[in-house]
Design a binder for these strands. Structure first.
Lengths: 348, 348
DNA sequence: CTGAAAGCGCTTACAG
DNA sequence: CTGAAAGCGCTTACAG
């Protein structure tokens, strides 16, 4: 076999048994020390511009890729960001995840996704396991968690941003909107359009669902209809099918109901579909409203009135806030209110 | 301040500056060497049962948690599993992810989720970045990828399982079902129920969508209707809204159409909703069929006829297969066909 | 079945 | 602005 001229410098050295290209290889090729390569590649200032260029060229020529494990071990900080959400079967969280993911990968971070299934023990377990990876930061859903979980986070010293809700505590970082105000706003919309017997139907009963319920109660109170509130709170997981069942139950239990505010769009869409099937005219017999403005809600028959929530923006801004924290940069607005919007369509 | 008796043994030693409990601490507490602790904790055989117990007790007392970075660096294999999917906005992939996640976390692995957005370059980039983390295994969607991406995987030596489709190549591992056969089966169902002008409408045009189209063509051919095929293939991403548009376009371009087979349920649900809005009777004027049997499809008006696909089972079995591969265990069925099921409901 | 030595590939202080 | 030394916390061969 004729010897071929190799263009790649990589073929000239081969020190390690693993065959990996290491910092030392790049250093040798660039004629500098490994620490200089490390600094140059990480963009640390205090490296001569000419050297930086030389090092980058050598790294590229050798196809050098830093080893995240070595880096994490030496610096005791990994390139991981832990993200904890309640469920993967909820579109809202998936959209949030999607936005977080785009922002983190663009900045060179990997997401570790933990799912709690709305269970405090599961959350604690997943946090414990993730924290062992020394993540650079943590994204948490809401503020309700076990004391053990809270202690784990506090003890870790890892920066943390909460999404979906807004913190009362000024020391906490959060990106979200007022679930209570949103619930109140939708209830007022129903009231303003002439409805008097507005019911609130919810499932899962997580903190946000209950905060929306608070808003509903506040609005009913404000118009002097507190005595005519009707709440149907199911602990079961949310689903289209459950929405249909809740619709039927509300109309059976409280036939005078002229509007139902569902805590989310899944339930509301299910109710709309059930109404269609059962021949219940919406909004004539009963107005239906949801929450979140999922894709599809605008296409329902009739189109669903709902509250648009900023999932993608929450993901983007939370990622940015966390990255600022991780870099030790100041965060001018630790409680970032992204607001919401009542979207009036034909169903209510 | 009065001195308090500390119950935790952890307070008695404090060698490292980091304050972490390390293998060495556990070793000292148990009166053995660090390597023995390492072996005992990993459940490597060749450690005396009595010692294992002693080590485990010491580890527990000290609250020892192994450092994944150190482990990865020393063994050049991390506790990560890389999972590459096309999109997060597709319920099918999210359900797959959910099943994978449950199985991997239960076994102590962390998932690194990569999203390609159906782009070969993005896939290659995410693979390159993930492979730098030396994952213990990789889960890939389908078989179509750039030569560069394929080379990365092959070169890494990391075990790999493909999901969604079945491999032709006996050397590849896969868990899925025949997309082509499923497309064919649904087309035959429409034909068997008396439809003659069956159209196929698709979006995104990923490999699986096109394989289903192959099945459609094969079925039409088999009944001598090849001359009456009508295909509407849109490269746009799938959505409910697009489903409605495709419905209208098919009926405009080919008014004789008496059934439309949509490549997925999103499109089909959108078509059903549009039909409702436009007053097009389904299935009387035109039968509508989908693919995947998403939650909600059974609740449509009319309920959607579709093909049920085993997303969760694919996730579970793929995770198991990959873990067997990672442990060097034999895999008796490298191409695991999980099948599909035509679900006949009222829409077709 | 148990251990002493060496090393995985980086980065953190500490110098100069 | 650049570098020599030490170490991060584990595991891999190699012995015995």
């Amino acid at each position: 076999m004729p010897s071929r001229k190799t263009t790649s410098a990589a073929s000239t050295r081969r020190t390690r048994a693993t065959g990996r290209v290491t910092l030392a290889d790049v250093a040798a090729a660039a004629g500098v020390s490994p620490i200089t390569v490390s600094r140059a590649l990480r963009g640390e200032r205090a490296v001569g511009a000419e050297l930086v260029e030389r090092v980058q060229a050598a790294a590229k020529a050798l196809g050098y890729v830093p080893d995240p494990a070595a880096r994490a071990l030496a610096s005791s900080r990994s390139s991981h960001v832990a993200v904890i959400i309640p469920k993967l079967s909820n579109t809202v969280f998936v959209e949030l995840l999607d936005a977080l993911q785009r922002n983190f990968v663009a900045a060179g971070y990997q997401m570790l996704i933990g799912v709690t299934h709305y269970d405090a023990d599961e959350e604690e377990a997943v946090l414990r396991s993730f924290l062992a990876h020394r993540p650079a930061g943590v994204i948490l859903t809401g503020f309700e968690r076990s004391p053990g979980a809270a202690a784990l986070i506090a003890g870790s010293g890892v920066p943390c941003v909460h999404v979906m809700e807004l913190a009362d505590d000024a020391a906490l970082y959060s990106v979200g909107f007022s679930q209570r105000e949103a619930g109140k706003a939708m209830t007022h919309h129903l009231l303003d359009s002439g409805r008097r017997r507005v019911a609130y139907a919810a499932a899962q009963l997580d903190p946000r669902t209950l905060q929306r319920c608070d808003g509903y109660e506040a609005a009913m109170q404000e118009v002097g209809l507190a005595g005519h509130m009707h709440k149907l709170l199911s602990p079961e997981p949310s689903s289209l099918a459950l929405g249909g069942q809740l619709l039927e139950q509300v109309l059976r239990d409280a036939p005078e109901t002229d509007a139902i505010f569902f805590c989310n769009d899944d339930l509301a869409q299910g109710a709309l579909l059930a109404a269609l099937r059962l021949g219940i005219p919406v909004p004539e017999r009963v107005a239906i409203a949801g929450f979140n403005d999922l894709p599809g809600s605008a296409l329902m028959v009739p189109p669903l009135t709902t509250v648009a929530t900023p999932r993608r923006e929450m993901g983007e801004r939370a990622a940015q806030m966390l990255m600022a924290l991780m870099r030790g940069n100041p965060v001018e607005q630790p409680q970032l209110d992204l607001g919401f919007q009542v979207v009036k369509r034909a169903s209510a």
